[in-house]
Design a protein around this nucleic acid. Structure first.
Length: 137
DNA sequence: GCCAACGTTGGC
DNA sequence: GCCAACGTTGGC
């Protein structure tokens, strides 16, 4: 199973809204960046992803699961753009902030630090575990 | 196919 | 609100 990180500005789509969707899931639409799209195309059913609030909060707040693999983005007719669907799985016990991640050398190579503008990122097993353990402190 | 111009993202 | 980083567009 692979791990990912999805960024969203809470003004346009927040963790609370995602949770309110429950098991129904939500298309992760609107991505117009090839690198991000390619990551979505690599996602498999059951993969897990961190839900990150950019701009407001700048912290990882929850975990989602991929509930539908890549398909045409319903918000455009342009066949270049795909999206997956995600369902909320759990809140993090406490949010993990970008500031903490930047301070911790375990995350020196993390996309969140190195490719801060990429909206769909892959996360290594080590990074995933480290963030989960931070969230439980 | 190159590259300048432009637009967007996102941290500060 | 500013600005750096960087992806995309379009002329040549």
């Amino acid at each position: 199973m692979a791990y990912w990180l999805l960024k969203s500005e809470p003004d346009s789509w927040s963790w609370q809204q995602q949770k309110n969707k429950g098991k129904e899931g939500e298309p992760w639409s609107g991505v117009r960046n090839y690198a991000a799209r390619n990551n979505m195309r690599s996602m498999k059913l059951g993969d897990k992803a961190f839900f990150y609030h950019s701009n407001i909060g700048k912290e990882i707040v929850g975990i989602v699961e991929i509930s539908a693999t890549s398909k045409q983005d319903p918000t455009t007719d342009d066949p270049r753009w795909d999206c997956v669907e995600v369902v909320a799985v759990a809140d993090l016990p406490r949010p993990v902030t970008l500031a903490e991640i930047k301070k911790d050398e375990r995350f020196n190579n993390m996309d969140l630090v190195k490719k801060s503008r990429l909206s769909v990122q892959s996360v290594t097993d080590e990074e995933w575990d480290a963030i989960c353990s931070l969230a439980n402190e």
